[in-house]
Computed example of a mutant assay.
Amino acid sequence: MSDSVESLLTALDLADTGARTREDIFTGPSQWMPQGRVFGGQVLAQSVVAASRTVPADRFIHSMHGYFLRPGDVELPITFAVDRIHDGRSFMTRRTQAYQKGLPILSMIASFQDDDEGLQHATEMPDVAPPEDLPSDTDILSAIDDPRARAWAADRPFEIRHITEPIYLAPPSEPSPEQMLWMRAKATLPDDRGLHQAALAYASDYTLLEPILRRHGLSWLTPGLKMASLDHGMWWHAPARVDEWLLYVQQSPSASGGRGLTQGRFYSREGVLIASVAQEGMVRVPRT
């Protein structure tokens, strides 16, 4: 198994530190990141796992909304406290607070549901090039003479293949508020639906703010660029494996006030809409 995927599974294997006191408290490690700040997708996924530990096995997360409150420190573990807000016949609601040094770094509320029948429709998947025809971002990043790029190439548990040219080094050839990419885990994950849902939350934080940069003809190497996720919403529509190729369709409908909004949709290779995502991020570029 890939070391990066092993690291992901270790991060999601939370310890039940509240068992003795019968409290819903869990702890998990922080993955190393080159800038010393916890990856937002990691704490999102861990919060999903913590909340999932407090519901029956036949209930699965269908939506969550989280706010990033403070940057996390990769040198410290994270404590997750879960509040059982509501237990209904079909739906259960949980609030997860993630803490370091006694201060919250993420606040999330999530809803769980048993499998149910109902009306069905979904936006169709775009017709795009298959992942086999596209270069891997792992290869692109590993060739860049920058410690952050090499760390991303080695430590990301997901392989990413942009359909439009990546904007790691240079601005896009044509500015656009939209982008699409394929992604999948670099190794096979256990057959655990809840684990794959949490891992999808992890992966959903990758690249999601890129359409804002792409719209304004910017790259990740823009001098003085500062970006940070502010909040994150996600809705799961159908089960899927994250170790199989998923198409991530992204667009940014708005940017103003030093903030940008992005939206995304995950599709299976067969065209099934798996999940929808929305995120607002801080985006600051020095004035010229």
Rank of each mutant, 00 (worst) to 15 (best):
H121N: 13
H121W: 11
H121M: 09
A122H: 03
T123H: 01
E124H: 03
M125W: 04
D127L: 14
D127V: 15
D127C: 14
V128N: 03
V128C: 03
P130Y: 07
P131G: 06
E132V: 13
L134S: 09
L134T: 09
P135S: 07
P135G: 11
P135R: 11
D137W: 07
D137F: 06
T138D: 11
D139C: 10
D139L: 11
I140A: 13
I140S: 04
L141G: 10
S142W: 06
A143P: 03
A143C: 06
D146A: 07
D146H: 13
R148P: 05
R148Y: 12
A149N: 03
R150D: 03
A151Q: 08
A151V: 05
W152D: 13
A153H: 06
D155P: 00
D155F: 01
D155E: 14
P157R: 05
P157M: 08
E159W: 01
E159L: 04
E159F: 02
E159R: 02
E159C: 03
R161C: 07
I163A: 08
I163G: 08
I163N: 10
E165D: 15
P166T: 11
L169V: 15
L169D: 15
A170P: 03
A170N: 15
P171T: 14
P172K: 06
S173T: 15
S173L: 15
E174C: 11
E174T: 15
E174A: 15
P175Q: 09
S176R: 12
S176E: 13
P177D: 05
E178N: 14
E178M: 13
M180G: 04
L181G: 04
L181H: 02
L181V: 04
W182V: 05
W182L: 05
R184W: 02
A185T: 08
A185G: 10
K186Q: 09
K186Y: 02
K186D: 09
A187H: 02
A187E: 11
T188Q: 13
T188D: 15
L189D: 09
L189I: 04
D192W: 00
D192M: 07
R193I: 10
R193K: 14
G194Y: 00
H196S: 00
H196V: 01
Q197S: 12
Q197L: 12
Q197E: 12
A198I: 00
L200E: 00
A201C: 14
